[in-house]
């Protein structure tokens, strides 16, 4: 599955459109991570636990989006966008959406 953040795929030609596909996930870290993060919060700097959490959830959301595209019979998703919202303390929703298409290499 090819994904791009732009309206086409360089070097490929779009032959069929399937419309919107999306994937989302809500995740939280275990309490130990939260405690470590709140301590780190005193001296500042990167909260590695949360960076990891966001990266994992983003991969999961993208994966779900691609699964949906596969069901349509698409082989690529173009114009992918990400959105984040925090639903509760310590949890975050990651949302990925894009347009499913079929592409073939340019002659």
């Amino acid at each position: 599955m090819i994904t791009t953040s732009i309206q086409y795929i360089p070097g490929m030609k779009i032959v069929e459109h399937f419309g919107l596909v999306q994937g989302s996930t809500i995740r939280a870290k275990h309490i130990g991570r939260d405690i470590a993060a709140s301590l780190k919060n005193l001296i500042g700097g990167e909260l590695k636990g949360y960076t990891e959490l966001m990266t994992e959830s983003r991969a999961e959301a993208t994966d779900r989006m691609c699964k949906q595209a596969e069901q349509f019979g698409a082989n690529a998703v173009i114009n992918v966008r990400y959105a984040t919202s925090s639903v509760a303390q310590g949890a975050a929703e990651l949302f990925a959406y894009g347009t499913a298409v079929v592409v073939k290499p340019e002659a």
Binding site: T4, S5, I6, P10, I31, D34, A37, S38, N41, L47, Y50, T51, M54, R58, V80, R81, Y82, A83, T84, S85, S86, A88, Q89, G90, A91, A92
Partner: peptide, 29 residues
């Protein structure tokens, strides 16, 4: 594109003071 979001945390319960932690996401092709 760059996306910025505020991350909620489990500390400072109920005080709603703002955690002061941000996530920045950059993506492109």
């Amino acid at each position: 594109r760059i996306e910025t979001s505020n991350i909620g945390s489990s500390n400072r319960k109920g005080k709603n003071k703002g955690l002061g932690a941000v996530e920045a996401l950059a993506y492109g092709t």
